[in-house]
Design a protein around this nucleic acid. Structure first.
Lengths: 132, 132
DNA sequence: CCAATATGTAACGCTATGGTTACGCATTAT
DNA sequence: ATAATGCGTAACCATAGCGTTACATATTGG
């Protein structure tokens, strides 16, 4: 049952990607298959810590383990990321709309302010509180 | 510095998206701007719980709050998702390559297992342990 | 067979999370 | 004014996470 075309739910993937170290591990694996120890050495945390991240990534099917001698080689498996991608898909239309409407807005703003500086206000305007 | 074309780091977004309720809130907001209470009523958890999720989403800039009378209207802001999208971008090539190289890899694997060459046994191989 | 190497797991400890209830504060309705 | 409505925050709780230090297990080298 190798390449079964399973469709992963985004749940596990989103959860796995929440940790920056895990994302970095995946980024590292984009360079190619690597043994656990080598992966661990690339990070400032202990090996067991990486081992646990790898376990989680394994369970999320984001990496695949292959044993070779006393080594455990880890390979990236991008499949689950497709689920993330398709979740995101529903939002692309929004930031595209944004590029338009926002662009229009910005241009209008600019026109309005031509002489002015723009620096500030307008929108966010209100509060002194940053975001919150 | 209003609509500064800031580029959000994926950090906050990935963190915010890790929770299924928060993703659902965003999904809900795709339908349009809504007051906090109405959002809360769409979920099985208490209103304060949603209030906290909204605060987090706000800080991640994934939603924008607008006060109107005694209501707090929430609007989706897809911008930070672009950071997620571009992180993902680096992986797209993999799941495309996958259709090819992975297939090759899998086939090679299969061949290796059937013909069973190579001295090592791998055997033990594939484990009885499901994924783990 | 024994030491060294490569890893995963168990047991802890501390902080972060997500949920709950109680409460405080505007805004709107009577 | 007073009550009702809409929300956010504080204070708590229980659990999930992530890191650390032993420790157990499998593989390779002498």
């Amino acid at each position: 049952m190798r390449n079964r075309l399973v469709t992963y739910s985004p749940e596990a993937a989103f959860h796995a990607l929440a940790d920056p170290t895990r994302r970095a591990v995946l980024d590292l694996l984009r360079q190619g298959i690597q043994p656990a120890g080598q992966i661990a050495r690339a990070f400032p945390v202990s090996r067991p810590a990486i081992s646990k991240h790898l376990r989680l990534l394994r369970r999320a099917h984001l990496v695949q383990e292959k044993r070779e001698g006393r080594h455990r080689l880890y390979q990236l498996n991008p499949e689950p990321l497709k689920a993330v991608d398709s979740w995101l898909q529903q939002y692309r239309v929004f930031w595209q709309a944004n590029l338009n409407s926002l662009k229009a807005f910005v241009e209008a703003e600019h026109a309005r302010e031509t002489g002015g500086v723009e620096g500030e206000r307008k929108d966010t305007a209100k509060r002194s509180r940053p975001n919150e």
